[in-house]
Design a binder for these strands. Structure first.
Lengths: 346, 346
DNA sequence: CTGAAAGCGCTTACAG
DNA sequence: CTGAAAGCGCTTACAG
């Protein structure tokens, strides 16, 4: 590999000057810059990132993590149907990171399993900052991260610190909108396939539904609220159990599209047609939601704003050192009406 | 951050000795090792990866790439329905990499856009090797990669080199199996939703079907072979067009589950029921294939063997330097019979 | 505006 | 078995 020393020799300047040209220092005469640039091109020089990171004490890598339970890896999570939504977010994270000149690093198993060990493993890799996808708030690594003041953006979690902020969808408003949509279609008795109680977005969505119903003067029948995990299979089971007992409701709101797909199967097996017998609505707007039979009415989440926003927040913390972290980003959602909900007004 | 010098001072030894203990050299007395280990624990020392990479001239990072068209990023691809299958592969890649002590690096935009620039960007990051997911064979970066002899494993592509090998499913056998399954159920007139002609796995699957039919003495009706892209929407359109013209067949084989989901929607819109009117089978075995209505009969691909195999091949090249690259891995698939195919025998 | 020198935190021959 | 020294390829004060 070509080194800066070789470039320097060829251009007849010092290594320091090559470095200045590469890093766009303005204290360089046009003539010298020209010569150095020519040498760089002729030799096909590319600065060694590792050496640069060592001396600059910081790399241009952003660590990406997606943990809840310990020891879980990042991609292991994406394989799950319940995390399918985050792929799109990741896509925009990547785009934004790359165009800002940052790489993405997927973690690694630290030799030391303690929260501090995790932080150190990030530090020894000199990551510029990290983006955490829907961490559970009680994860001990979060506190360690905040304490170490490693710049971090949390997605889907409301955690802040002196070098940390968060980005998430406005779930409460989102749930209000979908409930109002159903109310407008004449639905009064609704069942809920809610996410786990430990989940922030699950609870926010439930809350939003609650608020919209309350405003319409309708009380929520707690018997019609089923707690379920985020996986397709879990919601399938939860919906099946509910349907075994009763189906005296005209609509179901599922906490995610994936959960709705599970519910759809359960409804089908109980001989119930959507939307003729029961309306079904959900959240996220993943690709598959358009290809179910019938296509799902859903609250679309703005992955692009979430993903790009997270990277922008992070970079502003990394590069604008010493300042306050940017304020949290609350991203609006959008109602997409398809075939799974219908009016039951006379 | 704690440095090896501090550890050395505390343990009353030289930096070199600390390094030897960390790297498990055997020329160390038990007594000294003990003292150094104690100092490491007391100080919470973790060696600086960047400094280590600089002197060792190689990092423990594996670059992951998933490119076809230029300028496409890795996650941008995963967001597509057609790539959903690879998430599971990635999950095992990650597991295997992490347990071998390697990190995963997602690329980056090289400043120099030429194929050589791409390689240099890998080299300046000191990546140990790279894993390429289904690259299109004509991508110029592939040749550059082979020329540079950067250890590489190609997944889903048959590319070999002095430091490169590949891992893929046995698609031809897979297609033979699914066709024989349909033949055994009495189906003789089958339609095919084939992948793009430019796709290796698409063509292999078509070929396998061809072979199985030929063996049964059945000629393939070229009018019943529809070329389509891998996306759900593309196969939906292709299937719709076919169905507009005719439906004098009893079964459809789609080149992937995602394509089958698109076809299912088209069949549904044409008032055709699966499997009563038409049987439907496909490839991959993604999670969603179990939740369509009806659940799909599919050729399940062994993501674990593919993912872990790829990493093992790569690491054996990286660490066992100078030897021949490991021979390619052809991974068998498995028929999973569900509700979308049925017997039409009298 | 430019160069000589020090230094980032390790590992690795080279001696002993 | 252990240490002193050199060096990995850059960047960054410090002079000039």
């Amino acid at each position: 590999m070509v080194t800066s020393e070789q470039v320097a020799r060829r251009a007849g300047v010092s290594q320091a000057t090559v470095s200045r040209v590469i890093n766009g220092s303005k204290y360089i005469s046009a003539e010298v810059r020209e010569r150095v640039l020519a040498a760089i091109n002729e030799l096909g020089y590319e600065p060694d990132m590792v050496a640069r990171n060592l001396v600059q004490r910081r790399s241009r890598m952003i660590a990406l993590n997606f943990f809840a339970a310990e020891d879980e890896l990042t991609f292991a999570k994406f394989g799950r149907t319940s995390k399918y939504f985050y792929l799109d977010v990741l896509k925009y994270i990547e785009q934004e990171a790359v165009s800002a000149g940052y790489d993405l690093l997927m973690p690694f198993r630290p030799r030391d399993k303690s929260p501090e060990g995790y932080i150190r493993s990030l530090q020894t890799r000199r990551v510029a900052g990290s983006i955490m996808l829907v961490p559970s708030p009680q994860d001990p690594r979060i506190q360690a991260l905040l304490r170490a003041e490693l710049p971090t953006v949390f997605i889907g979690s409301m955690i802040q610190g002196s070098a940390a902020t968060y980005v998430k969808s406005d779930n409460i408003d989102s749930a209000r909108q979908i409930t109002e949509h159903l109310l407008a279609l004449g639905h009064k008795r609704m069942a809920f396939l809610a996410g786990p109680v430990t989940s922030l977005s699950g609870m926010e969505r439930m809350l939003g539904c609650h608020q919209a119903l309350a405003q319409a003067g309708i009380a929520l029948d707690t018997d019609l609220v089923c707690q379920s995990g985020w996986e397709m299979e879990e919601s399938y089971k939860a919906a099946s159990q509910l349907l075994d007992k009763r189906h005296d409701f005209t609509a179901v709101i599922a906490a995610s599209d994936v959960m709705a797909i599970g519910a759809l199967r359960a409804l089908n097996e109980h001989g119930l047609h959507v939307p003729e017998d029961i309306s079904l609505a959900s959240f996220d707007g993943i690709d598959f939601s358009e290809y179910t039979i019938p296509p799902l009415t859903t609250m679309w989440q703005d992955r692009e704003s979430i993903g790009r926003g997270a990277v922008q927040c992070l970079i502003s913390m990394v590069e604008g050192k010493g300042q306050e972290p940017p304020s949290p980003l609350l991203v609006p959602t959008r109602l997409v009406v398809r075939k799974s909900t219908r009016s039951i007004l006379p």
